[in-house]
């Protein structure tokens, strides 16, 4: 068993004024390389909080999240940024593309933060956008793309640094069922062909 992520008794407690709310209560979870995991639950059940903790976007209030032997609760922000950039690809419900940048620039952005040379970045971004079927839309700004196309750009972006783990937070939530089905198929195919660990959060209502 090749565990790449381990959650040990993870708690996340939000404090609003004097009121405390525990979104995660002692979660234990092992994630193995190449696994496809779906996290399901009703809205407000802590799915996104869990995903953000796994993706080093947020640190738990209590417990340990071990990623490649490092406890992310103990790492400084710059190291967390490094982990997010190199090992994790995020896909969001609201696509979360940078509106001032074109499709290809959005896909290149994670590589820019890793200091990869421009020529290499362009080649890889073109290849990835081709793979998600957006060869014709390289220089389109997000606001000229449809929801499905935007999510494809986001998928291409999540793969740009060739991460081990793809985290998708309700990736089809903003799409109609047909487009959503296409996106889901694309993700599942990628998981198989590229042997990625894929964690998808789903609202089960």
């Amino acid at each position: 068993m090749n565990k790449i992520i381990e959650l040990k008794d993870v708690w996340k407690i939000y404090k609003i004024d004097s009121f405390e709310f525990a979104a995660l209560r002692g979660i234990n979870l092992d994630i193995v390389k190449g696994e496809f995991i779906a996290i399901m639950g009703s809205s407000g059940s802590g799915k996104s909080t869990l995903l953000n903790s796994v993706g080093a976007l947020d640190v738990p209030s209590k417990g340990r999240i071990i990623l490649d032997g490092h406890d992310i609760a103990l790492l400084p922000e710059s190291d967390l940024a490094q982990i997010r950039g190199q090992r994790i690809g995020f896909i969001f419900q609201a696509f979360n593309l940078v509106p001032s940048l074109s499709a290809i620039e959005n896909v290149m952005l994670p590589m820019t933060f890793q200091g990869i040379l421009r020529k290499e970045r362009i080649q890889r971004a073109e290849k990835l956008l081709d793979a998600v079927g957006l060869k014709e839309k390289l220089y389109s700004k997000p606001n000229t793309l449809s929801g499905g196309q935007r999510q494809r750009v986001a998928i291409a972006r999540s793969l740009s640094n060739n991460p081990e783990v793809i985290l998708a937070d309700e990736p089809t939530g903003n799409l109609d069922s047909k487009t959503g089905g296409d996106i889901l198929n694309l993700l599942i195919n990628l998981q198989k062909t590229e042997n990625k660990t894929l964690i998808i959060v789903y609202c089960d209502t």
């Binding site: 976007l57 710059s78 940024a81 995020f90 940078v98 509106p99 933060f113």
Partner: peptide, 16 residues
């Protein structure tokens, strides 16, 4: 603010 969040989620450090 949202763009900053996006950039951080894809690996931007504070210094970036």
């Amino acid at each position: 603010t949202k763009d900053i969040g996006i950039m951080k989620s894809i690996g931007a450090r504070n210094s970036d």
